[in-house]
């Protein structure tokens, strides 16, 4: 019997390989994210200090929208040819399936952020006043916060009518505190001011809490009739 880690790795490898060959999700997500950045810079035309104040919010909104585009496709592949039904009857742990999907989405969204962040820097003339390296742990924690719930809710909405519309409707309200924390943490670093509470700490707590809940409930959702 393969272990959870092994199964997760196999699933993740399969998803990454498929994505590498088609690049469907990544292309759609990148183009969409790029459009959002361009629209934002048209609308706000920010400069200097003003850009630092609002960039944290804009970046994360752009990532959030783009991530939804990708996460909506998470389970589409498994629905064709009843692959999901095969998963249900297989003795493999449902959590391995969930983790591989969530990690796959994490890789896609992190890649998107890596490619889109320079775009933001160029369009908004950004230069961090605080320690810029801290943006990396904030981005990792924030991305996981979006992706873990997004992957789960995407599975939740498989059976609903107009399922692509459903994901943002349930993901955005639940993610609001995480989004606030990401934006605050980013703005603190960019503008180099503000002490306040530990926003990365709050994000980490959010991640732990919701990862636990996702793992506890995913089996139930997967086997729902």
């Amino acid at each position: 019997m393969a272990s959870l880690v092994q199964l997760t790795r196999i699933g993740l490898r399969k998803d990454l390989q498929l994505e590498w060959r088609s690049k469907d999700a990544l292309n759609a997500m990148l183009f969409f994210g790029g459009l959002v950045v361009v629209i934002f810079s048209f609308v706000f035309q920010p400069t200097g200090d003003e850009a630092r104040e609002i960039a944290g919010g804009l970046i994360w909104v752009a990532f959030l929208f783009a991530a939804v585009v990708a996460m909506n496709q998470t389970w589409a592949r498994e629905l064709r040819n009843q692959v999901l039904d095969a998963y249900r009857v297989s003795p493999a742990s449902p959590n391995a399936l969930f983790l591989s999907k969530a990690l796959g989405n994490f890789v896609f969204v992190a890649l998107l952020e890596l490619l889109m962040a320079p775009l933001f820097v160029i369009f908004f003339n950004l230069r961090a006043i605080g320690p810029a390296w801290q943006l990396i742990p904030v981005a990792l924690l924030g991305t996981w916060a979006l992706v873990v719930n997004g992957t789960f809710f995407s599975a939740l909405s498989i059976r609903t009518r107009s399922r692509e519309m459903m994901l943002p409707l349930i993901l955005f309200p639940i993610s609001l505190p995480a989004v606030i924390a990401m934006v605050e943490a980013t703005t603190t670093i960019l503008s180099g001011e503000g002490s306040g509470p530990s926003w990365p700490g709050a994000l980490a707590a959010y991640d732990v809490m919701f990862t636990t809940i996702c793992l506890m409930l995913f089996g139930t959702v997967l086997s729902a009739e």
């Binding site: 719930n149 939740l156 609903t160 459903m166 409707l169 639940i174 919701f210 959702v221």
Partner: peptide, 27 residues
């Protein structure tokens, strides 16, 4: 959002999906 999910779910699934979302909401 909880009520929307209930409304958009097929009748047989709505209770379970909604109950799961309620746990997320409360957390």
């Amino acid at each position: 959002a909880y009520l929307m999910l209930r409304r958009f779910s097929p009748a047989g699934n709505a209770p379970l999906l909604a109950a799961v979302l309620a746990v997320f909401s409360f957390a």
